[in-house]
Design a protein around this nucleic acid. Structure first.
Lengths: 320, 320
DNA sequence: TTGAAAAAAGTACACGTGTACATTTTATCA
DNA sequence: TGATAAAATGTACACGTGTACTTTTTTCAA
């Protein structure tokens, strides 16, 4: 391995001068700078990131903690995070919470900050004193400046979705959503029904408890709705995968989509474009959100004051 | 941050003794060991992985280089890799090659080894002298012990798939596959047709050149096959996503699946289970493969001689 | 009891950086 | 020209480890 000292020796300068050239810090005369650059080039010198980290007491690593890596919502976010992080000299590490023992990684690795995308917020809150961004889990701008949130306006989104279905003549509308303490999806759904004088029926709602929101969950939820024989004509699902899973269940029971039953998802994943038939959904700006989150997190790491943020979204009508 | 010296001071021993206790190296008397453990516990000491890395000249990081993070084939592999890596004290970093500039990461970060899953092998080959496992890209056990491969028996798999369709009465069978120098899929397909005395027709094959194998690619490929009006009755696709994309295109053109046309994918992803209708496919053991690859790679990193490996696969018949 | 070998514990240094501080060279101005 | 500030360069050390080497203590046979 070629080190800074090798470069210094080759260029006939001190090790500090090489450092100054590499980091554009301090004053270096033009001739020496030239010599150093040449030596760097000839030797193919790359600064050792590990030594840098040790010295700077920074790992230049951030962690992105998600329930399930096969869910495209998170991976699209990850793309944005990576893009921004790379541009600012950071690297993002994906941590999947399905894997038991994931929390050990937080101890053994050093992270300068975290983007946390699980529901059970308590697990991390006091454990660490690094900046954390909570994704899709709204938090007040509290006194603890280390914790902020980046969310979509979930309430608004589901209110829109429900309203859209009602305007198209649907009355018996089902909802498949994750159970949680403050369920914005459920309350938006209920408020919207009320607004249109449609009575709320408990048996049209499935609140599941799975940690990962995937096809299987949607499939099982839909099965329980079908068993009820409540004659529903439309479904709002927590996300696209759930909707597609639900469509699969409906398809296997002979329902024709959208003649017999309509579906609306949330996310606008690629899977929604190519499902059969293509799924109507709500577009979330995942890539942008990833960039925003990484940018905010790194700002926090660098000591800049940062406030919580909320994204809007828009409905995309396809064939379901 | 609490360091080893803090622990040493608290326990009234030398820093080296603490190190010996932490790493179970050398001889430490039972009383001192006890004292040290207690101090570690009280102070909540965790060894600094960065300092460890610097000293050991090892990052305990491996890289997994893939074309596209939203493709579940790779993420399922990643789960296995992570599982094994974590058990052996390593961490795996996902690098997506769609992101231009990904190759810089190889320079700036330190990786002890790589699992490489792109087609264009040359890019990495001589660039680095760390162990590399090439996934799904067969390599002879060469003199360079740093390079080995872990593959599926692609030829056998596609020979099986093609044979299955022929046995079920199909004659006009289409193939959608990635263009490459040694295309095992294409040759298996051709050999199998020949075996059954079915003439090979060039216009039934689409060789695409996209770097990522996703829905869109399958959709576009299918569109070009449909335009040809070659009257085909079955499609073999490179993977499930391609197959589902192709099914989407067929569906939009009024084909009923599987009455008018059959599909067979490759991977057995979750998406295949929940597609509409559920997709017939070939099961690849991704999780197992991930574990195997990580295990082999870490063995190589630790200097053990390791040889290339090949997985078998099996057909899964569903409704397409 | 003595001496040597084995076990236990400690001391000191290197891994490759960034930077505070010291020193040397150059520029500025009366 | 000389004095003084500014710029350029160098020296030395700390970041938190693991371990080679040294020193101290224990063990045990003669």
């Amino acid at each position: 391995m070629v080190t800074r000292n090798d470069v210094a020796k080759r260029a006939g300068v001190s090790s500090a001068t090489v450092s100054r050239v590499m980091n554009d810090s301090g004053n270096v005369g033009p001739e020496l700078r030239e010599k150093v650059m040449k030596a760097v080039d000839e030797l193919g010198y790359k600064p050792n990131i590990i030594a840098k980290s040790l010295r700077a007491r920074k790992s230049y690593n951030i962690g992105y903690i998600i329930p399930d890596i096969t869910n495209p919502y998170y991976t699209e976010n990850f793309k944005g995070i990576n893009k921004c992080a790379a541009a600012r000299g950071f690297v993002c590490h994906l941590i999947e919470a399905l894997n038991p023992g994931w929390i050990d990684i937080l101890d053994s690795q050093k992270f300068d900050g975290l983007i946390y995308s699980l529901e059970n917020v308590e697990e991390v809150e006091e454990a660490l004193n690094i900046p954390i961004i909570f994704q899709d889990h709204f938090m007040e701008n509290s006194s603890n400046l280390n914790f902020i949130s980046v969310t979509h306006d979930i309430y608004d989104i589901f209110y829109q979705a429900c309203g859209y279905l009602i305007e198209n003549g649907h009355v018996k509308i089902g909802l498949i959503t994750k159970k949680g303490r403050s369920n914005y999806r459920l309350s938006a759904y209920m408020d919207c029904l009320k607004k249109h004088d449609i009575p709320f029926k408990k048996e049209l709602v499935v609140e599941y408890t799975d940690i990962n929101y995937h096809y299987r969950t949607g499939y099982d939820s839909m099965m329980s709705l079908i068993k009820n024989k409540s004659g529903l004509s439309a479904i709002i699902a927590q996300n696209d995968l759930i909707a597609i899973g639900a469509m699969s269940a409906a398809g296997r029971h002979g329902f024709i989509i959208p003649k017999d039953i309509s579906f609306i998802g949330c996310d606008d994943s690629v899977a929604a474009q190519f499902s059969n038939p293509p799924l109507s959904t709500i577009k979330l700006y995942k890539y942008k959100q990833g960039i925003k989150m990484a940018d905010m997190l790194i700002n926090m790491i660098e000591g800049k004051k940062t406030l919580s943020y909320r994204f809007k979204a828009k409905i995309i009508i396809r064939n379901t």
